[in-house]
Computed example of a mutant assay.
Amino acid sequence: MSDPVVVEVAIDAPAARVWQAFRDPVELRRWHGWEYDAIEAEIQQIYFDDVTASEPDLTLDTHGAGRFELEPRGEATVVRVVRAAPDGAAGWDGIYDEINEGWRSFVEQLRFYLERHAGEERRTLFIEREVDPPAGEEWFSAAHQRGVVADPSTLVIVAREKTIVSAYGIDEEAFAALRERFG
């Protein structure tokens, strides 16, 4: 029996470009997680240490935290994260899991990066509480989190007990304004 899919997101970018975003540490920093002192070590551990990457198959197996599967669909790519269900469970239905929720946030950040800000540097805020989602374009909605494009440069993801704000191409003044707004 194959592992269940916990996240599936279609990204308007070719598979080669999505693959590059998973394999280049500079690219990973532009979409994975948020800014903090150990982000480079986290990226190294998740995407490179004890990882099996197969470019021909477009798979990246983290051996525990999940397996990424990329499926080309013309000029778009479907990104799937699959993970073994907990012991005794047939799947993930009805089970809240922080790792699954993290993958959802990260893959949606990847989609925002590739579809709207490819090649741009990012600044982030990580807020250890839920903020009221700003007005704007709904980017995604899931059972335990929601993403809103607050303005062309900024994606706000509100999840259980946390908020991630990713902003591209902004200067220090604009970043200070984001910190004031959401901090």
Results as ranks from 00 to 15, higher is better:
V6F: 09
V6N: 12
V6P: 09
V7N: 10
E8P: 02
A10K: 15
A10R: 15
A15G: 02
V18Q: 04
V18C: 03
W19H: 04
Q20A: 15
F22I: 06
L28E: 00
R30M: 10
G33L: 13
G33D: 06
G33V: 01
I39L: 13
I39C: 02
E42N: 04
I43T: 05
Q44W: 04
I46H: 07
I46V: 10
I46W: 05
D49E: 14
V51S: 03
T52L: 11
A53D: 01
S54Q: 01
E55I: 07
D57R: 08
D57I: 01
L58N: 00
L60I: 07
T62K: 09
H63K: 15
G66Q: 05
G66P: 12
R67C: 13
E71H: 11
G74C: 05
G74Q: 03
E75G: 06
E75C: 06
V78D: 09
V79H: 03
R80Y: 02
R80W: 09
A84S: 11
D87S: 15
G88I: 11
G88A: 12
G91W: 07
G91D: 15
W92R: 13
Y96V: 12
Y96K: 10
E101I: 13
G102P: 04
G102A: 11
W103F: 14
F106W: 14
V107F: 11
Q109E: 15
Q109D: 09
Q109H: 15
L110A: 06
H117L: 05
G119P: 13
E121Q: 14
R123G: 01
T124F: 07
I127P: 13
E128F: 08
V131A: 03
D132W: 06
P133R: 07
P133A: 14
E138L: 11
A142C: 01
A142I: 02
A143G: 06
Q145E: 15
R146G: 08
G147E: 11
G147F: 07
V148L: 10
P152Q: 03
P152G: 10
L155D: 01
R160M: 12
E161R: 14
K162F: 07
K162Y: 13
I170P: 00
D171G: 15
A174M: 04
L178H: 00
R179S: 08
E180P: 00
R181A: 12
F182A: 02
F182I: 01
F182Q: 02
G183Y: 05
